[in-house]
């Protein structure tokens, strides 16, 4: 039998899971049309997914467990509102008892904090640049390159209204060889930011924008991606792309020139 291509393996699984963005899905479909090995492998993966997802493989909760959990939650609720079961206690005093009891039980807060700490993800120590690169890579891997997909700047700009508290410059650079693909809202450096997506040939350029007074001019390389940062009109603008530094600088100049100063 024809072997599937090792270098397409990851994309194949992302495709089977419906997690590729449009550009990568298209790329993979084109390959699929010309590669019998990968086509057969995709069929096998789909069959495997079906076999695992069939009924009776999951272990649903038993009725007994459902009742047990419901009872435990009831106990928890009544502990919260634990009422000295004195006949004739007014609703008012019961409410106060409840509140007093609740606010005076520090163990609850500690338990809650414990859960919170367990949930906290180990993302400390990640620099802003690392976060930007991670966000760029994620936008390519997962099906999340754009939230609004259009080459029309007049569609993208209003789309951001109400989603973020500032107005990012959305410029048309198609004539310079950088067509606009769309926009999305992302989360970087502890705040919600605007991301614009442009393309140059096969390369994706993520433009991250947020209000800042402290941005500096910088160009750097990280994990094989090129980053460019500058400040314009009280906005910090970051470019992240696998595009070569020369063309990325060209994009920066075109973007900076076209966007409001």
């Amino acid at each position: 039998m024809i072997r599937p291509c090792a270098e397409w393996n990851l994309l194949l699984h992302g495709y089977a899971d419906g997690e590729l963005d449009a550009a990568n899905a298209l790329k993979f479909e084109q390959h699929l049309g010309s590669c019998g090995g990968c086509a057969a492998e995709l069929q096998r993966v789909m069959a495997l997914k079906q076999a695992i997802a069939q009924d009776q493989v999951s272990w649903p909760a038993s009725p007994a467990l459902k009742e047990r959990v419901a009872a435990a939650l009831r106990r928890e609720t009544s502990m919260r509102s634990a009422l000295p079961a004195v006949a004739g206690t007014s609703l008012l005093s019961r409410l106060f008892d409840h509140v007093r009891r609740w606010s005076l039980v520090p163990s609850m807060a500690i338990l809650a904090a414990g859960v919170f700490l367990m949930l906290a993800r180990p993302e400390t120590g990640m620099s802003l640049q690392d976060e930007l690169v991670a966000s760029h890579v994620r936008s390519l891997l997962a099906n999340h390159l754009t939230d609004v997909e259009t080459s029309d700047q007049h569609t993208v700009k209003p789309w951001f209204t109400g989603k973020i508290d500032f107005s990012p410059p959305v410029v048309d650079l198609a004539s310079r060889g950088f067509p606009l693909v769309g926009g999305r809202v992302d989360y970087v450096g502890g705040r919600v930011v605007a991301a614009l997506i442009y393309r140059r040939n096969g390369h994706v350029i993520n433009v991250f924008i947020w209000p800042s007074l402290t941005a500096s001019n910088a160009t750097m390389e990280r994990e094989g991606y090129n980053l460019v940062n500058w400040k314009q009109a009280e906005l910090s603008i970051w470019l992240v792309s696998d595009l070569n530094p020369v063309e990325l600088k060209e994009f920066k100049e075109d973007f900076a020139e076209t966007a409001p100063k």
């Binding site: 909760a61 467990l65 959990v69 435990a72 939650l73 928890e76 338990l111 809650a112 859960v115 919170f116």
Partner: peptide, 15 residues
Amino acid sequence: IVQEAYLRAFRAFGQ
């Protein structure tokens, strides 16, 4: 495990 998880979730639901 499920019962424990649900109790914790209930207590931490505010978060």
